[in-house]
Design a protein around this nucleic acid. Sequence first.
DNA 1: CCCGAGTAAGTTGTGCACAATTTAGTTGTC
DNA 2: GACAACTAAATTGTGCACAACTTACTCGGG
Lengths: 153, 153
Amino acid sequence: MSEAPRLDRQVCFALYSASRAATAVYRPVLEDLGLTYPQYLAMLVLWENEPRGVKELGDELGLDSGTLSPLLKRLEALGLVERRRSGEDERRVAVHLTPAGRSLSAKASSIPQRLADAAGLSAAELEQLRETLGKLTAASMLRSDRFASGTTP
Amino acid sequence: MSEAPRLDRQVCFALYSASRAATAVYRPVLEDLGLTYPQYLAMLVLWENEPRGVKELGDELGLDSGTLSPLLKRLEALGLVERRRSGEDERRVAVHLTPAGRSLSAKASSIPQRLADAAGLSAAELEQLRETLGKLTAASMLRSDRFASGTTP
DNA sequence: CCCGAGTAAGTTGTGCACAATTTAGTTGTC
DNA sequence: GACAACTAAATTGTGCACAACTTACTCGGG
């Protein structure tokens, strides 16, 4: 009996739209830094803790080497990171920040606040949104174990 | 003073992750229909009301012809839609469903419920999430008027 | 020592997104 | 009717995502 579901009723479409809308708001801001949104995310991870292997970066971001390898090459071409084969384990490539990459963090520090302002939501709403999204992501990962692996009790 | 923000604190990353996680859950389900997620969205719009011009589809989905033209060609190659130049306005291309495209709607009708189950959230949480995401998308559109245009009072 | 399983990174191919441009066709305005 | 301003769709080029595969290295067992 059931007919085709309406587009505007779907949480998943809301998610897809909101995600694209959010990165669209980031785009002009990040253009000042010369970064795309995924590149910015990779830099965020590196600013937190560096150097990092490609796989570690992938675990944090939920991306595989197929996405990260070319992305990191572009960051290297921009002079923000350096990729060096590990001496101990020749399979690994350690991603280091260059001085330029490190100093970019100062320029980027004001971004989250600016974006929070643009969102038009209260701090409480944003916090609750983040939590719900986290639950959703976690639930999805349980099913399609594409990321995640460290839940060994 | 402010240091680089932490990745796991960012609503935007939560949004980006949740969106990718959600489409990852859709992927195997949609594979049975032979559709990708954006193709499924386009079909949803057409199931609701058909035929539609490329621009109308784009307004509903927030996509431009650069994305939709090749996507619709692939749907046409699958035998699900037909694109016909409008007689009245030769610029327009009307996208029609084929019988195969129309009948696919029955197969797709159970999908949203299956996905809602997989989300691991209550109906109330899902509803609230959808609302918050809608607000966020709307707020973003006000700034970068990339979609939206029909708010002439 | 050698072999086989496992793993890290890279490569290839497909399909979005999106900016920028191009090609047609339409609609005023004079 | 001619022309400028606008519009619809397609095209081109860049950069993700992600599946599938390849290459190179590591490690444990026999």
